[in-house]
């Protein structure tokens, strides 16, 4: 993993071309951050400040893919030695799916605990070793996809019940990721309001029927009709 290197010049352009020279590459394949714009000062005498930028080579996608695959493989090898790991860099977070049949159960764990632990550690290792690349989302044997679908169904069912009974419904304690799915699923439903409840990483989602807001008073309605 390359580190940022700093360059100075009398203006930003000069600093950047120095960076290109140093890395022997085009401007497009550098990640550049401008630290100070520089100024020519008054009559080029007072307040003269040099421009400073920092730059590093952009990650090569193939390298990122291999790095991510290596990390995930190292973590899962003792659990599922024969699995095929696919990395999809086009998604953000990077989508990593593990194809596995025999050991899928152990790899996923109770309520997806193991797969979540692997994902968390992989992200920590990525953050440490290749800062700058995006987080990953890890799936095994399509578990998360199925899980997401299930959560959506639960959300819709609870929303219906909330509307029918006029009462507030509560979900199980869920992780932030799963709560987000519920909020997003019900966000378009105008008769429903959602809110998280509780402390710590696991919270419940409250699904509340919205009170009929802005109910017009009869006389207001009257004036509108006569207009």
């Amino acid at each position: 993993m390359e580190e940022f290197v700093e360059f100075v010049g009398k203006d930003v352009d000069e600093a950047i071309s120095k960076a290109c020279e140093y890395f022997q590459t085009e401007r497009d394949s550098l990640e550049i951050e401008i630290l100070s714009g520089g100024s020519s000062g008054i009559f080029g005498l007072v307040g003269l400040k040099k421009a400073k930028v920092k730059a590093k080579k952009r990650e090569n996608p193939l390298e990122v893919e291999n790095k991510v695959r290596d990390i995930v493989q190292n973590l899962t090898k003792p659990i599922a030695p024969n699995s095929q790991i696919n990395v999809d860099l086009s998604k953000d977070p990077i989508y990593v799916s593990i194809e596995e049949e025999e050991d899928a159960g152990v790899l996923i764990g109770k309520d997806g605990q193991t797969i979540s632990a692997v994902q968390y550690l992989a992200n920590r290792i990525i953050a440490k070793q290749c800062p700058g690349i995006s987080r990953i989302q890890l799936d095994a044997a399509n578990y998360r996809q199925r899980q997401n679908e299930k959560i959506k169904q639960t959300a819709l069912a609870l929303a219906q019940r909330a509307k029918r009974t006029g009462k507030t419904m509560k979900t199980q304690p869920l992780t932030s990721y799963h709560r987000r799915i519920i909020h997003l699923t019900l966000q378009k439903d105008r008769g429903i309001q959602t809110k998280s409840l509780g402390e710590g990483p696991l919270k419940r989602v409250l699904i509340m029927p919205k009170k009929k807001t802005m109910r017009r008073k009869p006389e207001q309605l009257q004036t509108r009709l006569t207009q």
């Binding site: 003792p78 152990v106 764990g109 193991t114 979540s116 632990a117 692997v118 550690l121």
Partner: peptide, 12 residues
């Protein structure tokens, strides 16, 4: 997380 992944590996 390390304990979780360790217990999965030891099951295996």
């Amino acid at each position: 997380a390390m304990r979780t992944i360790l217990s999965a590996a030891s099951t295996k």
